[in-house]
Write a protein that binds this DNA or RNA. Structure first.
Length: 166
DNA sequence: CCGGACAACATAG
DNA sequence: CTATGTTGTCCGG
């Protein structure tokens, strides 16, 4: 059973889904309809129910994070993935609000300095964007790199955190 | 500065 | 096994 909520934000419609008391998905799309479709793909044959009240506190955290300045502790996350992906996501959680890292730095941090590109893939596979700050990972040369759903979202998130120079 | 070639690697199909 | 990608480095223009 998946409980979810949808909230409007400056970067688009955001869906937050919870299962067994932990956040399993955060998704940013143009419209609520796109989000519903995303749920169909990611959780086929899984009972889903919208419950805004249940996800009220999480909504506040995500909204604060998107607007910047939010410093509420991240809620429990359900991070299912390969061992490699999990190590990358754990590393991303260590990046302070307003700071950035390069893909190469993350690769070094997890002990696999040559896996920079694989790190980028793991970022793209992050099921919980915003809460796991994959948007704080940029290129070595200072350019933004890419972002699932569009770099405009990545730009907006970074700018909201006060990151400059891009 | 800009484009092209290529190395390196986890994942998906 | 092959293709791909949120990279990085090197080499010519």
């Amino acid at each position: 059973m998946i409980s979810f909520t949808i909230l409007p934000t400056p970067v688009g419609a955001v869906l937050i889904a919870k299962r067994d008391g932990k956040i399993c998905t955060v998704s940013i799309r143009e419209s609520a309809a796109d989000l519903e479709r995303m749920l169909d793909r990611r959780f086929p044959r899984e009972e889903r129910k919208r419950d805004d009240a249940l996800l009220a506190s999480e909504s506040a955290v995500v909204s604060a994070a998107i607007d910047g300045g939010g410093h509420v502790a991240a809620p429990p996350l359900e991070l299912n993935g390969t061992p490699f992906q999990q190590s990358v996501w754990m590393e991303l959680l260590k990046i302070p609000n307003g700071a950035t890292r390069s893909y190469a730095e993350i690769a070094r941090a997890i002990g696999k300095p040559k896996s920079t590109r694989a790190v980028a893939q793991a970022c793209g596979a992050n099921p919980v964007p915003v809460l796991v700050p994959c948007h704080r990972v940029i290129r070595n040369d200072g350019s933004l790199g890419g972002y699932t759903g569009g770099i405009h979202i990545k730009r907006a998130l970074l700018r909201a955190e006060g990151v400059t120079g891009f």
